[in-house]
Amino acid sequence: MATLGQAGDTKPIIKVRGLHKYFGPLHVIKGVDLEVTPGEVVVIIGPSGGGKSTFLRCLNLLEEPSAGTIEVDDLEVNAAESLRMQRRRIRELRQKAGMVFQAFNLFPHMTTLGNIIEGPVTVKKLPKEQAIAKAEELLEWIGLSEKRDEFPSRLSGGQQQRVAIARALSMEPKIMLFDEPTSALDPELIGEVVEVMERLANEGMTMVVVTHEIHFARDVSDRVILMADGVWAEIGPPSQLFTNPKEERTRRFLAHIL
């Protein structure tokens, strides 16, 4: 998989054009474009209220874009058309885009295993035995095989987030979206989640990550985007953006968090 991932080499797997988002009169995203090639890891950083999360949620249509097009793996959703008419396409797109939330959002009434097989069994209609076999592989991959039959309430935050990642991966997505995956975690639990994300990146998964975890951005990402006031303030490889930012806005932001 790793061979897939050289920026610019191949056809982009994510294409965003002219994306706008309004919340009532509030203009949150002011026309941004983005192309991500397979295997690329893009990290979006920036101040709160800058529209990072909204942008990410627009990528799998959890938020309705007000204008613009979103294309994931050749599936295009256009805000100009009625979204109701594109419902089926949106569901397909979501299956290609795994999502990990800040608050984990595990299903509390299901065990760890139940959470992981829920998507494949209910949505993809995969036979249960097959889904379980696959889920057990994933559990081993995230290192939680022994928690197979526990309910989420008995897992730590870090464990829950790892299960949430496994749940997203169980759908065999083409891309993974991470919405501040470590923000709700105690500092000592961040490591285990970041470690899983790193391994995922190393295996060639295309990832778009909204995070405040600068180490992850610096060490793992291919590209870092600073988003502020609904636009890209600066885009660049981490080595350049963190050590030698071009924009004054970036410098100010970095001064705050480093």
Partner: peptide, 15 residues
Amino acid sequence: GQYEAAEALGMSQAQ
């Protein structure tokens, strides 16, 4: 969050 997590898996409203 529960709705979003389910929608993100591609579930229909009925599911």
